[in-house]
Design a protein around this nucleic acid. Structure first.
Lengths: 214, 214
DNA sequence: GTTGACACAGCACATATGGTCTGATAACTT
DNA sequence: AAGTTATCAGACCATATGTGCTGTGTCAAC
């Protein structure tokens, strides 16, 4: 695998990205030729073929402008948008439904579109709509959208969605292990942390974002 | 002005949107012909021309797949992404810099890309990065991104960014006029509102969104 | 030196694709 | 009913555009 692109291939890739931001369609071979000051269309074809082999783009044969950026080629492009399913509500006292199946942005759920960069690279992100004022110590209001990455393994200091077995409550807090106990620290620094036995806490996911529209 | 689209024009528009989500480029006249079961390319051309007149799309003559969705035509499409400039910081005690010039998403500023739907249709939206904990009664934390629509005319109940002349502070609160006084109500319902003379308040913009990534 | 892979140049060809011209039908006006 | 406009059909043309063929210079391996 030649992970390195030639100067010309980089130029071509950047030109395609720029072109697609300006227009809403990919350039032709001859557009690229002119834009990158290449003397022959066959050179463009040759390098496009290389870029395709290295999985930066996909070409549809015999199709004009049949170029689709994929994988690495999308990096930095505005097309780098993902659809995040809104899988339900989150509220104190309600069990938190976390998707077990591979979180495909399927039908059946509402969705939000966001730039992939805003999820911090997390995979399988899903969203929940906050109901009620119970998350206010996490600086989350009624109607907010919480982005969660499903995981049970979290590090100290992560903001997590945790289910408290005894209290039968879902809560959003920063998570710290302290021996057999877990300290849950509200995001609002004026409020006090709570300490509970580790056995009383099950982490459902890591919070990667909070969104509020008014 | 838009006298309403014919059935066929709606079909074509929807087909183009669907096609552009599947591929990364617009369909050809003949793609549309096949996709909408139209008998002649001239019919497609005719209706495309109409759609262009009604400002749903733009066509580039002599260019294959030279279709760009604009305005209404973008509605519901994933392309409906806008770049919002991050124009600086917002913190208590700091004067709030509101763009006076036409807020073009120019160079010189960092940007966030968001679906246009998330700004609630507001125009000229810009963003500010929150510094410090002083906005905590608006459920806004250090590092959050606040989306603002520049305006001085707000309705009762709007969340606004207000500058308090005497206190020399910027604050985010819900805004209510009460005679000569203005009541500024924190978003956090556990906290008390403040009342100040209307002359002490200058509204700098309406808050349309709050975003936090962790 | 010969060989051969690699990147490039130039050209020519086939077809993919937008546009046009001529009428036909339906819908609407007066 | 006659005229006018909007929409559609089918054929045809011009060109926009992907692709193949041949050749050239470079460079490293043998």
């Amino acid at each position: 695998m030649p992970p390195k692109l030639s100067r010309r291939q980089q130029d071509i890739l950047e030109f395609i990205q720029a072109f697609m931001e300006e227009h809403q369609f990919p350039p032709t071979v001859r557009d690229i030729q002119a834009g990158c000051e290449i003397s022959s269309t066959s050179v463009v074809d040759y390098n496009l073929h290389k870029l395709q082999q290295n999985n930066f783009l996909k070409r549809l044969p015999e199709v004009s402008r049949g170029i689709e950026l994929i994988g690495e080629g999308l990096r930095g492009s505005k097309r780098d948008i993902i659809s995040i399913p809104i899988m339900g509500n989150i509220a104190a006292g309600e069990p938190l439904h976390v998707p077990d199946a591979p979180t495909t942005a399927d039908e059946g759920y509402d969705e939000v579109d966001l730039p992939a960069s805003m999820t911090g690279g997390a995979q399988n992100v899903f969203a929940l709509r906050v109901k009620g004022e119970s998350m206010i110590d996490a600086l989350v209001a009624d109607g907010d959208l919480v982005l969660l990455e499903p995981t049970t393994e979290v590090s100290n200091g992560d903001m997590v969605a945790a289910w408290l077995n005894d209290e039968e409550e879902t809560t959003l807090k920063r998570f710290y292990i302290e021996g057999d106990m877990v300290r849950l620290q509200p995001a609002n620094s004026t409020m006090q942390p709570i300490r509970v036995p580790a056995s009383n806490v099950s982490v459902r996911g890591r919070v990667v974002g909070v969104f509020r529209t008014l």
